[in-house]
Simulated scan of single mutants.
Amino acid sequence: MTDTLILTIDVHAEPAAVFAVLADPANHPAIDGTGWLRGSLDPGPVTGEGQIFRIRMYHDNHPDGYYDMANKVIAFEANRTVAWEPGQAGTDGELEFGGWTWRYDLEPVGPGQTRVRLTYDWSRVPAQLREHITFPPFPTSYLEGSLQNLSTLASGR
């Protein structure tokens, strides 16, 4: 079994419009296909590699219900690529990353058309975490819905 899911969608919008939606964490709850994302905790868009942006989350199976994720931007090329690795503050307050990543690659495929490739990769999730969380932790249909949400948001810009 592979530890990566890759899905694509063609969006009726220029790459800059698609990227603007993805680079603003305030849009992520509207893009989310799981219903787990509740809001951005940091103002403004992602502007470069190494940046941390935080998202408020909710999951019925989380011990606290609500929790925060800190996402480290690991790839950034304006209007082409944005990727991040989710993590949380450990007991010492330092960020610890779980080993899974989200990556969006954008390719112009015609006037006003962008092919979006979403890569969800959990290949670096350690064995002890896999004992508690099944990967992927959602059906592929959630990612398909997420890409459709992205398309709707970007097409409206």
Rank of each mutant, 00 (worst) to 15 (best):
N27D: 04
L153Q: 03
S141M: 15
E85I: 13
D42M: 01
S155M: 10
P25R: 07
G65W: 10
A78T: 14
D68S: 09
G44M: 07
E107T: 10
M1N: 14
H59S: 08
G156H: 03
N27Y: 11
A70Y: 12
R117H: 12
D24I: 10
A23D: 09
F76Q: 02
R115V: 08
E96N: 13
R56H: 06
G87V: 06
P29D: 04
R54K: 06
L129G: 04
S146V: 09
G65Y: 03
W84D: 07
R124S: 12
N27C: 07
W100S: 03
G90V: 06
I52F: 03
T140G: 08
Y120Q: 08
F76P: 01
T8Y: 04
F19Y: 02
W100I: 02
N71I: 10
T2H: 14
G93R: 13
V21M: 05
T47R: 08
N71Y: 03
F135Q: 13
A70R: 09
G44E: 04
Y67S: 00
I9E: 07
F135H: 03
Q88N: 02
A13C: 02
Y58P: 00
L37E: 12
E77S: 08
H132Y: 15
F53S: 10
D10P: 10
R80L: 00
P126K: 11
